[in-house]
Amino acid sequence: MVSKKMRMRGVAAAVAVLALGLAACSSDSDDTANDDTNATQDSGDGGDSGELIKVGFSQLGAESGWRTANTESVKASLTEENGIDLTFVDAQQKQENQIKALRDFIDQGVDVIAFSPVVQTGWDEVLQEIQDAEIPVVLVDRTVDTTVTDPYATWIGADFKSEGVKAGEWVKENYPDAKIFELQGTLGSGAQVDREAGFDETVGADKILGKASGNFTRAEGKAAMEAALQAYPDMNLLFTHNDDMGLGAIEAIEAAGKVPGKDIVIVSVDGVRDGLQALVDKKFNFVVECNPVFGDQILDAIKKVYAGEDVPKETIVVDATFDQTITQEEVDARPY
């Protein structure tokens, strides 16, 4: 018994020593990281285009075809030929992964940090650390809600609210008496909150029979639509927060013996190839694009931020809209 206890103590002591060692290590690397940053920044100030800009990019994951296209666009633009030394980290849709990646970027002493936050809140601490390390931040696609003052240099992304408004205006013009059901994205995500707000304000809350979340996925969109067809038999228009849920809903509508695009008009946001194909097939009626290919705009912003030039606080990516007049050629030419 005694020897066991002693052994336990030994282990505890060893753990404590290890922890101290780790703490020392991390503070060491912090110091060197800061030195590195200063060094590169110095040379950056003095020199010119010969130096690569070290960029840490934390993508939130690959939750949809849209994100995949966005990732490809970023990787295609932030290249060495364009003067960027890119460290790309995929967070697999977990905030803790993303926070860890951001801390790693600080340790590595990157010049600019760019990231698409997986959720809106919970960034206070790490953003403060980034600010303390004097690394400028370029937010991509999604926004943050933080108490840190001036948390980022610039934000580039789509205006989700205006996407909702565009969808709502089309509905108001073409189907003023529509009885609407809304398939929401993952509750609390920026795309869900803002698209819903924009759409609801435009068409008027009294037109909306009900809402349910399909978590931006086909499978859950389908299951939610199956139930909604039963719960809201009067429904004749579906507004879905992304194409994938809409594609799932098509299956549910067809299984119920109704015709998508006719019995139930479908308005969607995103404009991925499968979604546009549904437009060609007359199953979707209207799609507001959420353009993911803006790597060039991110590159431009990073260069300006690095050079210390003035950048607008917000850069909104231009979104197109499509209706059933879209041609098969346009769909096939879609890169994502």
Partner: peptide, 15 residues
């Protein structure tokens, strides 16, 4: 349960 939330017209937040 997943389905009843929609059938009962409950807001998605309360699911």
């Amino acid at each position: 349960l997943d389905r009843a939330v929609i059938i009962f017209h409950l807001p998605s937040e309360s699911k």
